[in-house]
């Protein structure tokens, strides 16, 4: 018999269900957009099953949709760069997960925005562990199921622009960006990157403007531009 759950663990499970359901639903938009960007259903499912990190998946199909397979290198690089944040999440989760090869391998695959966010919000180590696994597993199952549904829908639809689905892709990216726009530094980077990418679009081959815009982050992050006043206001709490 399993021991009774603590109130903290029950709260972690509730959070996992809420976040898991919300995230799984937008797998439908990924599946549909992936198929409409030119991938087949198997290729779309491979991304959700193996890559399994929403931002990178959307980036890959976004670059392929605008540049085609000629932009394959840029598509790979965009996905990889967006995936780098998972390295930091993994470092953060490493002590929470604990030892064991198989357990750590499974945890690595489930290390995404949502599982780490739910885990980090829990007060006790047991609830942090449960929050991570419950969220990760729920989203993995839900995301793949809804990706398949979306891919089948996309397959039926055909022409993208008639249904406004090209605009839906931008709206989906905005949804991923929105929660990160609270600080002035991130707002400045977002605006600058958007301007750089737009200005470079007529000059560079498709896919490259997005990567060059990433350099804005390196410059602003490296010199900590636009961030100092906020840090002083917080009294150097970091």
């Amino acid at each position: 018999m399993a021991r009774a759950r603590s109130p903290e663990e029950s709260a972690a499970l509730r959070a996992a269900w809420a976040v898991g359901l919300a995230t799984a639903v937008y797998g439908v938009s990924f599946g549909a957009l992936a198929v409409l960007s030119g991938l087949d259903i198997w290729q779309t499912m491979f991304l959700s099953l193996v890559m399994f990190t929403g931002g990178s998946q959307f980036a890959l199909i976004g670059v392929l949709a605008s540049g085609g397979l000629a932009a394959g290198g840029a598509a790979i690089t965009s996905a990889a760069l967006l995936g780098t944040r998972n390295v930091f999440y993994a470092i953060r989760m490493s002590p929470v997960i604990g030892p064991g090869f198989l357990r750590r391998a499974a945890a690595a695959h489930l290390t995404i925005d949502e599982s780490v966010a739910v885990s980090a919000a829990q007060p006790t180590p047991a609830a942090q562990r449960l929050g991570f696994w419950a969220t990760g597993i729920l989203i993995y199952l839900g995301w793949n199921l809804t990706t398949l549904i979306g891919a089948l829908i996309g397959d039926l639809i055909g022409d993208v622009s008639a249904y406004g689905l090209d605009a839906a892709a931008a709206a989906a990216f905005l949804g991923l960006l929105w929660p990160r726009l609270k600080a002035r530094q991130t707002q400045a980077v977002a605006v600058a990157a958007a301007v750089v990418a737009t200005l470079l679009t007529p000059v560079l081959v498709p896919g490259l403007p997005v990567l060059v815009a990433g350099a804005v982050a390196v410059v602003v992050g490296g010199f900590d531009l636009f961030g100092t006043s906020r840090k002083r206001a917080e009294g150097g709490a970091a």
Partner: peptide, 18 residues
């Protein structure tokens, strides 16, 4: 900090291009 901002910059650039 740079890793976090890289995510923001790439998403914003993708929105602009899309």
């Amino acid at each position: 900090r740079t890793a976090n901002l890289l995510t923001v910059a790439l998403l914003a650039a993708l929105i602009a291009v899309q």
